[in-house]
């Protein structure tokens, strides 16, 4: 098996320069690539193109709030770093904190999770919910694209050959909402690929009408699902049983789960009903739990 060239840049500038010449596979944490290209015990994985290792680039490791108040996360930040950072939005921290297990969370990066474009990936749910964008950089310049457009479809992204994801920018956080909800259904608490994950957020107006409502679900189709049309059904109105059912039925048409569709649909319907029910009765606290008193050990507090 022929060995490919492997680049080990030490700065982002160097990495982008390499990218401008060579269509190298960007390897960050390696937790997708080393598995998808693995052979067997004791053998080196095989890649069909040159590889560029960016795991330790310091420029991709920053988390800060920009002058517009948006949370900016370097693409090389790991799930553990995001889960631990109070600057990061709550929904995203929850998702990061339930990816894989501890060792995985110290390797898996947010850039890799987005670029992998798996409908079961954990970070896109919150990122769609909060209108996040990715910053794409090449030696020729920078562009920003909403994550929901960047992920074109199953395993397909809008990335040019000379570009890298350098930052993820999240304009909203739990501070913009009165109630938040995040729940991942997995077969175990650790190392569970999502069976379905639902993220929601709601804000009331002073007159009790809904000012904003957002809902996204992963593992319910070929990419993460969110629909502003469905959300608009209830925005501007007071929550009622009829409107909740309208949202539930409309969202049911948005998702298209293939495996275990009835389970995934019913779980989604129940989570939406529970969330609205708790919002309507103005439950205490901002975090709506999945069912009474259910708290995942180690869940991120607000």
């Amino acid at each position: 098996m022929e060995e490919v060239k492997c680049y080990m840049p030490e700065t982002l500038e160097e990495a982008l320069e390499i990218k401008s010449r060579v269509n190298a596979i960007v390897l960050a944490g390696g937790s997708d690539l080393m598995v998808s290209n693995k052979r067997t015990i004791g053998l080196t994985p095989v890649f069909d193109r040159p590889v560029m290792i960016v795991r330790n680039l310091p420029e991709l490791k920053k988390i800060y709030i920009n002058d517009k108040g948006e949370c900016c996360i370097g693409s090389g930040c790991t799930s553990a770093e995001i889960a631990a950072s109070k600057l990061c939005p709550w929904h995203l921290r929850q998702a990061a904190n339930r990816m894989g297990a501890i060792g995985l969370r110290n390797s898996a990066t947010i850039g890799g999770n987005i670029a992998n474009a798996s409908p079961k990936g954990d970070t896109p749910g919150p990122l769609y919910l909060l209108d996040a964008r990715v910053k794409l950089q090449s030696i020729h310049g920078t562009r920003e694209v909403p994550v929901a457009d960047f992920i074109v479809k199953f395993k397909t992204i809008d990335l040019h050959e000379d570009e890298m994801i350098t930052e993820v920018i999240v304009p909203y956080s739990e501070k913009d909402f009165d109630y938040v909800f995040w729940h991942k259904v997995g077969t175990r608490k650790a190392n569970a690929i999502s069976k379905i994950t639902v993220s929601m957020a709601l804000k009331f107006n002073a007159d009790d009408t809904v000012k904003d409502f957002r809902l996204s679900a992963t593992a319910t189709g070929s990419k993460t699902n969110r629909s502003r049309d469905v959300e608009n059904i209830i925005i501007g109105k007071k929550i009622s049983t009829e409107l909740i059912e309208e949202v539930v039925q409309a969202y049911d048409k948005v998702i298209s789960p293939r495996a275990m569709p009835e389970f995934r649909r019913e779980a989604t319907r129940r989570m939406i009903r529970r969330f609205f029910g708790e919002c309507a009765r103005h439950a205490e606290g901002k975090v709506i739990e999945t069912y009474d008193g259910y708290r995942m050990p180690g869940a991120i507090e607000l």
């Binding site: 492997c6 080990m8 390897l27 944490g29 390696g30 937790s31 080393m34 598995v35 994985p45 590889v51 290792i53 795991r55 330790n56 553990a80 501890i102 060792g103 995985l104 110290n106 390797s107």
Partner: peptide, 16 residues
């Protein structure tokens, strides 16, 4: 920090 080196290429350990 704990990691699983089955997922890490040796080049990622350079200077670490």
């Amino acid at each position: 920090r704990m990691v699983t080196p089955c997922l890490i290429p040796a080049g990622a350990a350079d200077k670490q």
